[in-house]
Nucleic acid binder design. Structure first.
Lengths: 246, 246
DNA sequence: CGACGGATTGAAAGGACTCAATATGTGTGG
DNA sequence: CCACACATATTGAGTCCTTTCAATCCGTCG
């Protein structure tokens, strides 16, 4: 079922070279990483780690999208992270996974066996420094999301998610018109619901409402056009003063 | 208004010596920290930093409790962190505060001017390593909290908060009876509401309901007795299998 | 004592959920 | 090429939980 194992590419040619945990590494360090890394591909829907399971590797998402979720015994689930290319999976110093990580699309991971990776972290500063930076960014994102989960209405939650996805996409592409955005939803309605602490029915209703009110346009279920980012950010309850905060 | 500035104590005698960002430092490093640190005291209710303001120091909470909050323009606020002794405030590499930090009780901070602290981080590994460890722990806590905010009922939210406070307290004290816990709430009903994404009225109602159902006992508004931690954790929706997970 | 902030309690309203039916789209096999 | 199954998504109706608005209580401090 799996796509064939990807050939190891040279770290220098890696698409996430300057954003991932290895971003700050010099040539010598890259050589070490090169020697302990291996690629692995996961199909859409496939689990990458399961909460509580032993985990003997850490790694970076090279391409594709994965989700980090937590589950209660009765099945209620909350997404606690959305992993995009360059994001890091696993925690040095811990040997069991704390969350469920599931590939949402086909995902290519650049994996490192945990032991050698930890040894490298202890010896050279660049990986640890970059990982600290990335972890602090993730903490900020998590706290931003706590405001969304705790205090926003369903409509604001949807607008917040769309605004984040739109901005993320914008950072990858050029846009003549800075107010207009076009992108594809990488998530099903259910995944959106799990992200936002809603039911999928409520997600569907609020997406429809935003469409009816002209805040977004839809082609099919997944292709979204935002005619006016300022308007969307108002709907999200964010101050849109900055306008173009990237 | 302020309590008199605290005398600098020797780092070796500091109550948070082995839990704070300096936990891993050796004697030489402590000497450097000693030379750039200064203590500062904040009264209950006093702001420590305000979101968006310039911040020229970072530091550790030595004693007392502070809250990290985010606010929307219309006044809705969400607590995104509860700072206890040894917790770190500020982010190296950023010069404006991202959150409101407010002292809930009298707070003593051990502050470092940001510039020299960053220089030290760049030169010696121990501070950065410990900060990474602490940040990863905070990220885990934030993600745990996302599940609470997104998926738990009001009653479960209250039980979750009480259970966390009880366990935190337990880690500081000895208890003959591992099932029984006694502690003081460090938060007002409003602060609890901001933590949990509820209104203060709902908090009040659910606390009363838990009391009526015998899950907790109250003396005054703040003094809480948990006769059976297992029962409380069931109410929180956590699996209480472990029983004594600290 | 009276004023104040924090907390409790009540009644009514509203927003999100639940349950259920229907639609849309995709892939498989006849 | 169509029929069918299946997953995903939309829509509706009714319910329930939390919020909102309001009144009251409690303890502390001038």
């Amino acid at each position: 079922m799996n796509a064939p194992t990807i050939q190891n590419v040279n770290c220098g040619d890696c698409p996430i070279r300057h954003r991932a945990v290895c971003a700050r590494c010099d040539a010598d360090e890259l050589e070490v990483l090169d020697s302990i890394k291996y690629y692995r591909t996961y199909d859409a829907g496939q689990p990458i780690t399961w909460s509580g399971d032993r985990m003997d590797f850490v790694g970076s998402v090279v391409s594709g999208i994965a989700t980090l979720t937590q589950t209660m015994e009765d099945g209620r689930t909350q997404m606690v992270g959305l992993l995009l290319p360059s994001d890091f999976v696993g925690r040095p110093g811990r040997d069991t996974a704390a969350y469920n990580v599931v590939a949402t699309s086909t995902v290519v991971m650049c994996c490192f066996r945990k032991k050698p990776f930890e040894e490298m972290m202890a010896k050279t500063p660049h990986v640890a420094h970059r990982l600290l930076e990335m972890t602090l960014d993730e903490l900020d994102a998590a706290r931003e999301w706590m405001l969304v989960l705790g205090r926003k209405t369903a409509r604001e939650k949807i607008a917040s998610l769309l605004s984040i996805l739109a901005r993320r996409d914008a950072s990858l592409q050029l846009h003549k018109d800075s107010n207009r955005r076009v992108f594809d939803l990488p998530l099903t309605r259910e995944a959106m619901a799990d992200y936002l602490g809603l039911t999928l029915e409520t997600v569907s209703r609020q997406v429809s409402a935003l469409r009816k009110d002209g805040v977004i346009e839809l082609e099919g279920k997944r292709h979204v056009t935002v005619p006016d980012m300022g308007r969307l950010m108002e709907e999200a309850g964010d101050d849109s003063d900055g306008g173009c905060l990237i």
